[in-house]
């Protein structure tokens, strides 16, 4: 417990302390029950929170697992630079699995056109990397408040040997008795921050004074409005003939594939200002910033069944 925030009542935890303790418990449970876990790291705020939670769970020892980034090749340069610096500071092992490599090897086929995104291709690269390294558990930073299909996902989410999620046949999850048993080739996706909301994540970042990639804070950038979102104009997003790019003050709420991660208008330049904005926000994180979820109401569910994060 942080000495700065004494419990207001003896023997009571704040909601953030309770969520933190639950997440630490989940991480240790995975490390104890599975042989080859890996922590999936995007450079984004949720995975930065996971790294801090891993420190809380395992220090002064090193993490009993490596950190893996699925590199779409369409990253924000700020996020990549940040990734390398953070992992080096922690002194942990980083594995980079590249979507470009999957495409070059003919494992994945790129969809062409100006609206192409590599988000879906990540699944192939991820499953190949899981098989190659023999991972039997992957920590992910997904939260149940992100999406309707996620709302039903277990903390220990079982994947068959094709990496697929079967929403109708999930293991019952009672108390905090997680069942991590898998056969060879199968794996568990473990979500330590399942019960956190976007606001919880930001409040935790403030409490822990975590550093974030600069794109999370307001900056000037040339963007183009598309499908109700603002996409950053750059090597992966070219304006279409009828579109009018403009420079605006924006920040990103997630760091994903540059081709489909939207910015929001913002003047928030510090964590505290972001928290104020998030508290006032009336649009969910995915709706505002992920073009690929907009295709259909069931888009996320379909991708998850295929083995997406």
């Amino acid at each position: 417990m942080s000495p700065l925030a004494p419990p207001r009542h003896p023997f009571e935890l704040s909601h953030l302390e309770a969520l933190e303790s639950e997440a630490i418990y989940i991480m240790r449970e995975v490390a104890a029950e599975l042989e080859h876990p890996v922590l999936l790291f995007s450079g984004g705020k949720d995975s930065l929170v996971l790294l801090r939670l891993a420190e809380k769970a395992f220090r002064p020892a090193r993490f009993p697992f490596p950190v893996m980034h699925i590199d779409t090749g369409h990253n924000f340069p700020e996020a990549l630079e940040f990734r390398d610096r953070r992992v080096a500071e922690l002194g942990e092992r980083l594995i980079v699995a590249s979507v470009q490599e999957s495409i070059d090897k003919g494992r994945a086929t790129e969809v062409g056109g100006p609206l192409a995104s590599r988000n879906r291709l990540q699944t192939i690269t991820l499953l190949d990397a899981i098989a190659e390294h023999g991972f039997d558990a992957c920590f992910g930073g997904a939260r149940r408040d992100e999406d309707k299909a996620r709302a039903k996902e277990r903390v220990f989410s079982f994947r068959d040997d094709f990496g697929q999620w079967d929403p109708k046949n999930q293991r019952p999850e009672v108390w905090s008795l997680y069942n991590g048993r898998v056969h060879k080739g199968e794996h568990i996706r473990a979500f330590p921050i399942s019960n956190w909301t976007e606001l919880d994540v930001w409040m935790y970042i403030a409490k822990e004074k975590l550093e974030l990639p600069s794109i999370y804070f307001a900056h000037r950038r040339v963007v183009v409005p598309r499908d109700g979102m603002l996409l950053a104009v750059g090597p992966y997003v070219e304006p279409l003939p009828h579109e009018e790019p403009a420079e605006m003050m924006v920040r990103f709420r997630t760091v994903g594939d540059m081709s489909c991660t939207g910015a929001v208008l913002s003047s928030a330049s510090t964590v505290d200002e972001v928290i104020v904005e998030v508290m006032a926000t009336r649009i969910t994180e995915r709706g505002a910033t992920r073009a690929d979820d907009k295709f259909s109401e069931a888009a996320m569910e379909d991708r998850k069944k295929e083995g997406y994060f």
Binding site: M1, S2, P3, F11, L13, E17, A18, E20, S21, E22, I24, Y25, R28, E55, K56, A57, R59
Partner: peptide
């Protein structure tokens, strides 16, 4: 704890 030693531990502290 990662944040230093504590004087007491109670449920549900990790």
């Amino acid at each position: 704890t990662f944040d230093g030693p504590v004087e007491e531990a109670f449920p549900p502290m990790s």
